[in-house]
C-alpha cells in the first residue's frame, strides 16, 4: 500500500523533473553560456564554466544601446498591457452587465480575433499603420499588440465578471453607485487574479514579439530587444557567449514580471474565489 503510493509519487516527481528540465536546461545553458569562452560553449554547452568570466555581461550592461533596447521593450510591453487590460475590461464589463441589441453578435465578432493568425495580418497592418502615419513610433507596435490581445482578454474577463454576484451591484446601486463607478471601485479590484493572468500573457507575448517590431520600426532608437539582439548578433557573429549574455539579461524582466504576478495567476486559473 505505502510502497505503491511511494512508487506513484516517485513516478510523478520523475516526470515533473523531466518536464521541468526541458524548460530550465536551455535557460540555464543560456545564462551559463554568458560566462564561458566560445571554445568552451562548443565543448560543454551545459556544464558549469571553468572560470566565471563576467566581462561579457559587463560589456553588455555598460552598453547604452542595450539599455535603450530594454527601455523601449519595457515601455511598449507595459503600455500594451495597460491598454489591453483597460479596454478589454471595459468592453467585457459592458458585455457582462448590460444586455443590448446585437451584443451577442458583437461579442462573437470580437472572438473571431482568436482565430486570426498574427502573421497573416502583418501586411495589411503595415499598410494601415503607414497610412495613419504611425510608422516607426512606439504606437505602431503597441496598438496592434493591444488589438490582438483583446479577444482573449475580453473572453476571460467577461466570464470572470459574470461570476461576480449580481446582488453586489444591486447593493452598490442602492447605495448610489452607478455603472462606471462600480467598474472602478468593484469590478477591477475584485478581478486582480484574471487581470494578472491576462497581464502576464500579454506582457510575455509583447516582450518576445519579433515580427511586428521588425516590420514597424526602422530607426535604432526605437528598437525593441529582439531587434537589438539581431543587430548585436550581426556585429558579433561568432561570439555566442555575448549573444547568450544578452539574451539572459533581456529575459530577466519577463521573469520578474511573471514572479510578481504568479500568486494571482494561480487564483485566476482556479477562478471564482470572490464569494462575499
Amino acid at each position: 500500500m505505502t510502497s505503491k503510493t511511494f512508487l506513484r509519487n516517485l513516478l510523478r516527481v520523475t516526470i515533473l523533473c523531466v518536464i521541468a528540465s526541458f524548460v530550465i536546461a536551455p535557460l540555464l545553458a543560456t545564462a551559463l553560456g554568458g560566462f564561458k569562452t566560445n571554445a568552451e560553449i562548443r565543448t560543454s554547452a551545459f556544464g558549469l564554466p571553468e572560470s566565471w568570466n563576467f566581462e561579457f555581461y559587463n560589456a553588455i550592461a555598460s552598453d547604452p544601446a542595450f539599455w535603450r533596447y530594454l527601455g523601449n521593450s519595457l515601455l511598449i510591453s507595459v503600455l500594451a498591457v495597460i491598454l489591453t487590460l483597460l479596454v478589454g475590461a471595459a468592453a467585457a464589463y459592458v458585455f457582462a452587465q448590460i444586455r443590448f441589441f446585437g451584443s451577442r453578435m458583437l461579442f462573437s465578432y470580437l472572438l473571431l480575433g482568436l482565430m486570426f493568425p498574427f502573421a497573416t495580418a502583418i501586411l495589411p497592418l503595415f499598410i494601415q499603420v503607414r497610412d495613419i502615419g504611425l510608422l516607426d513610433s512606439y504606437w505602431s507596435v503597441i496598438l496592434p499588440q493591444t488589438a490582438f490581445g483583446l479577444s482573449l482578454a475580453i473572453l476571460l474577463f467577461r466570464t470572470f465578471f459574470e461570476q461576480l454576484p449580481r446582488e453586489l451591484f444591486e447593493a452598490a446601486y442602492v447605495d448610489g453607485c452607478g455603472y462606471i463607478r462600480f467598474f472602478w471601485r468593484f469590478t477591477l479590484p475584485l478581478s486582480t487574479p484574471i487581470l494578472a493572468t491576462v497581464g502576464v500573457f500579454v506582457f510575455v507575448q509583447s516582450w518576445n514579439n519579433f515580427l511586428l517590431p521588425l516590420v514597424m520600426l526602422n530607426s535604432r532608437e526605437a528598437f525593441t530587444w529582439p531587434l537589438g539582439m539581431m543587430q548585436f548578433r550581426g556585429e558579433f557573429v561568432t561570439e555566442w557567449n555575448r549573444t547568450l549574455a544578452f539574451v539572459t539579461l533581456t529575459i530577466m524582466p519577463a521573469i520578474v514580471f511573471f514572479l510578481a504576478a504568479q500568486k494571482y495567476i494561480v487564483a485566476g486559473l482556479t477562478g471564482g474565489a470572490v464569494k462575499g
Binding site: E167, E170, A171, F186, L190, V274
Partner: peptide, 14 residues
Amino acid sequence: GISMVFQSYALYPH
C-alpha cells in the same frame, strides 16, 4: 430614501 438588505448580504468583499 430606501435602503435594502439582501438575502446574501452582498457585502463589499474588498
